[in-house]
Simulated assay, not measured.
Amino acid sequence: MILDSYDKAILRAIQEDGKITNQDLADLVGLSPSACLRRVKVLEDSGIVSSYKGILNSNKLGLSLMAIVSISMDKHTTERFDFFEKQIAIIPEVIECLLITGQSADYMLKILVTDLEHYHQILLGKITKIPGVSGVHSSFVLNRIIENRPIPIY
């Protein structure tokens, strides 16, 4: 799909405010409300806009400790990776899981917990019990400098 300047403006705007009304969006990008709505629908149907979500403040919810965790696997097989991915997906404290390359680790996890004790329970009670996990390296976030940044639209 080729994006024109209106599509790009729409994408920028809805990343900044997913609750923007169609009328306000149309006014912002310089389209009629019906034309704007049609374009948003096309962007959604094409999969460029995949969902709308609220961004929550984890600290206000008592989840003040973020861990970045590198996971190494014992075998590099599709079956082993598929099993790990299914198991890690059911741990709600894991808010991101990335398959990576270029390091000794195979996966990078972002985990949100209340405190070190909570992290300890997740690590020893769930993550290290997943068959195939052979190494874990944890780092703890001191400050979130850039977070939830919109995707650049060129």
Results as ranks from 00 to 15, higher is better:
147 E>M: 05
82 D>S: 13
42 V>E: 13
15 Q>F: 08
38 R>S: 10
26 A>I: 02
26 A>F: 03
89 A>N: 07
6 Y>V: 09
42 V>Q: 14
126 K>S: 14
90 I>N: 05
24 D>M: 01
118 H>Y: 05
94 V>K: 05
63 L>Y: 15
97 C>E: 09
16 E>H: 03
87 Q>K: 12
62 G>P: 01
106 D>V: 11
93 E>K: 05
60 K>G: 04
128 T>E: 15
19 K>W: 02
113 V>A: 04
47 G>I: 11
22 N>I: 12
56 L>P: 04
36 C>L: 01
111 I>M: 02
16 E>Y: 07
131 P>N: 05
65 L>G: 02
22 N>R: 03
63 L>Q: 10
129 K>T: 14
66 M>G: 02
111 I>F: 02
99 L>F: 09
143 N>P: 02
143 N>H: 11
142 L>C: 06
102 G>R: 10
59 N>D: 15
73 M>P: 04
132 G>N: 00
137 H>N: 12
82 D>T: 09
23 Q>I: 13
86 K>L: 08
105 A>W: 03
24 D>S: 06
107 Y>W: 12
150 P>N: 08
40 V>E: 09
153 I>R: 06
98 L>V: 01
138 S>K: 03
100 I>T: 15
67 A>Q: 08
147 E>K: 12
106 D>G: 15
45 D>C: 03
43 L>T: 00
135 G>D: 08
41 K>P: 01
112 L>H: 08
28 L>I: 07
125 G>D: 10
58 S>D: 08
79 E>D: 11
27 D>Y: 00
154 Y>D: 13
112 L>M: 14
108 M>C: 10
29 V>M: 02
103 Q>Y: 12
5 S>A: 09
56 L>E: 11
141 V>R: 02
79 E>A: 11
17 D>M: 00
109 L>T: 04
153 I>S: 10
38 R>G: 00
105 A>E: 14
48 I>L: 15
109 L>M: 13
150 P>F: 10
57 N>M: 05
133 V>S: 06
90 I>E: 11
131 P>G: 06
65 L>T: 08
28 L>F: 01
28 L>M: 06
58 S>G: 04
4 D>K: 14
55 I>K: 14
49 V>N: 11
41 K>G: 07
133 V>D: 05
123 L>Q: 11
6 Y>I: 12
124 L>F: 14
76 H>T: 06
10 I>V: 09
2 I>E: 15
67 A>D: 08
44 E>A: 11
90 I>G: 07
77 T>P: 01
9 A>L: 05
138 S>H: 05
114 T>M: 14
28 L>N: 08
139 S>N: 07
107 Y>M: 07
154 Y>C: 02
69 V>I: 13
125 G>T: 02
92 P>H: 02
80 R>T: 11
113 V>P: 04
20 I>Y: 01
69 V>N: 00
84 F>Y: 14
97 C>S: 15
102 G>H: 08
102 G>I: 07
134 S>D: 13
88 I>Q: 01
93 E>C: 04
112 L>E: 12
80 R>G: 02
59 N>Y: 14
114 T>W: 08
58 S>L: 07
78 T>C: 00
65 L>K: 12
91 I>G: 03
66 M>Q: 15
101 T>A: 14
